[in-house]
C-alpha cells in the first residue's frame, strides 16, 4: 500500500511544514504520494520536485484557493481507496482537515505524532507535553498528523514525481464560504521555521514593549513569539503564541524574555537546541530548562543585548 501526504500551500509556495510531513511519511517505508489541491498547476510542479516522492495527485480548481476543509475532504476521499496511510502536518490546516477525513473513513486519527516507532505504533505528547504516550493502532488504515518540530524537512528539490491530474469530485452545494483574511505581514522568518526565536511573556508589561523584542529580532533575523499570558493580556496577536494551544517551535536558539515558564509554554519550545531565559525572578521555572539564564530587568537587558549583537 501507499502513503498520501496532503500538501499545504499559500498558492505560491509549499509550506515548510509539508516538507516535515513528507519526511515523517517516508519513515513508514512505503511509496509516498502527494495530494495537491490548488487554483493553478505550479504548486504541483513544485511538489513533484520534493526528493523521494512518487506521484503528485493534482486537483486544480478555483475552490481550492483557501484550503476550505469541506472541499479538500472531497478530493482526499476520491482517492482514498489506494492508500492505507494519510499524513499531514499538525498546522492549523492539518488540524482543521484531517479529522473530517478520519470520520468519513471511520478511522481514529492520531494527532501530533512526534515519533514513528513502527507502522502501527506512534509516540505523541498528551497533557500539554507533561507525558508522552505510546499508542498502538489496531486499524488497517491510519491517519496521522505530525508535529513538524520532531521531523527534519524533506529536500524540496531534486525529486522527479509524476503529476497525475485528477478531475475535481462533485461537491454538494457549498455551505462554507471564504469571506476574507488578515495575515500577519512580516519581513522576519516564520515562527515555526525560524533558526532563532525570541519570545516575550507577561513580564513585557505592555504590547508596545514588544518593540524591544523586535529590535533584537531584526538584528538576529529571528522570529518573535509570545507566551499565552502575553497573548491573553493583549500584548501580542494569537499567531505569535508558542505552547500547548499555540505553536510548537524547535529553533537553534530560543530566547524567553519575561516568561515564567508555565508547563503549557514549555510544551511548545522545550525541544529547542539552546534555550536562553531572561527574567528578573530567579526562581522562575523557565530557568530549569534554560541552558543560559540571565537574572535581570528585561528593560535594561534587551537594549544592551541589541546594541552588542
Amino acid at each position: 500500500m501507499r502513503t498520501l501526504v496532503i500538501v499545504e500551500h499559500d498558492n505560491e509556495n509549499i509550506s515548510s511544514s509539508t516538507l516535515c510531513a513528507v519526511s515523517a511519511a517516508q519513515k513508514l517505508g512505503q511509496d509516498v504520494d502527494l495530494l495537491v489541491a490548488s487554483s493553478a498547476n505550479h504548486i504541483a510542479e513544485k511538489a513533484q520536485q520534493i526528493m523521494g516522492i512518487s506521484k503528485v495527485l493534482n486537483f486544480v480548481g478555483d475552490n481550492f484557493k483557501n484550503e476550505i476543509a469541506e472541499d479538500l475532504t472531497a478530493c482526499i476521499l476520491a482517492v482514498s481507496k489506494d492508500y492505507n496511510f494519510f499524513v499531514a502536518s499538525s498546522s492549523t490546516t492539518g488540524k482543521n482537515l484531517m479529522p473530517r477525513i478520519s470520520a468519513l473513513l471511520d478511522i481514529q486519527q492520531i494527532s501530533e505524532v512526534i515519533e514513528i516507532v513502527s507502522n502501527n505504533t506512534f509516540k505523541k505528547p498528551i497533557y500539554a507535553g507533561a507525558c508522552i504516550a505510546t499508542v498502538e493502532s489496531q486499524q488497517e488504515k491510519n491517519i496521522i498528523t505530525v508535529r513538524t518540530t520532531a521531523f527534519e524537512k524533506a529536500v524540496p528539490e531534486g525529486g522527479s514525481g509524476q503529476i497525475e491530474n485528477i478531475d475535481i469530485p462533485e461537491v454538494e452545494s457549498r455551505k462554507s464560504v471564504f469571506v476574507g483574511n488578515e495575515l500577519t505581514v512580516s519581513d522576519r522568518p516564520e515562527l515555526t521555521s525560524a533558526d532563532i526565536v525570541i519570545s516575550g511573556g507577561r513580564g513585557m508589561q505592555d504590547g508596545n514593549n514588544f518593540a524591544l523584542l523586535d529590535s533584537v529580532a531584526n538584528k538576529l533575523n529571528a522570529a518573535v513569539g509570545a507566551s499565552r499570558a502575553a497573548v491573553d493580556s493583549g500584548f501580542a496577536p494569537n499567531d505569535y503564541q508558542v505552547g500547548q494551544t499555540g505553536k510548537s517551535v524547535a529553533p537553534n536558539l530560543y530566547i524567553a524574555v519575561g516568561i515564567s515558564g508555565a508547563i503549557q509554554h514549555l510544551a511548545g519550545m522545550k525541544d529547542s537546541k539552546t534555550i536562553v531565559a531572561i527574567n528578573k525572578d530567579e526562581e522562575a521555572p523557565i530557568f530549569k530548562v534554560a541552558d543560559y539564564g540571565l537574572v535581570g530587568d528585561l528593560f535594561e537587558v534587551l537594549p544592551e543585548l541589541e546594541s552588542k549583537i
Binding site: Q108, I110, T121, P125, I126, G129, A130, C131, I132, A133, T134, V135, E136, S137, Q138, Q139, K270, I275, E282, F287, K288, V289, A290, D291, Y292, G293, L294, V295
Partner: peptide, 17 residues
C-alpha cells in the same frame, strides 16, 4: 487506538546562570 505506555518526557538538564 490503544495506549501501551505513558512516560515522562526526557528532562532537559538545567544549565548555568
Amino acid at each position: 487506538v490503544k495506549t501501551v505506555k505513558v512516560e515522562s518526557p526526557s528532562e532537559r538538564e538545567e544549565g548555568i546562570k
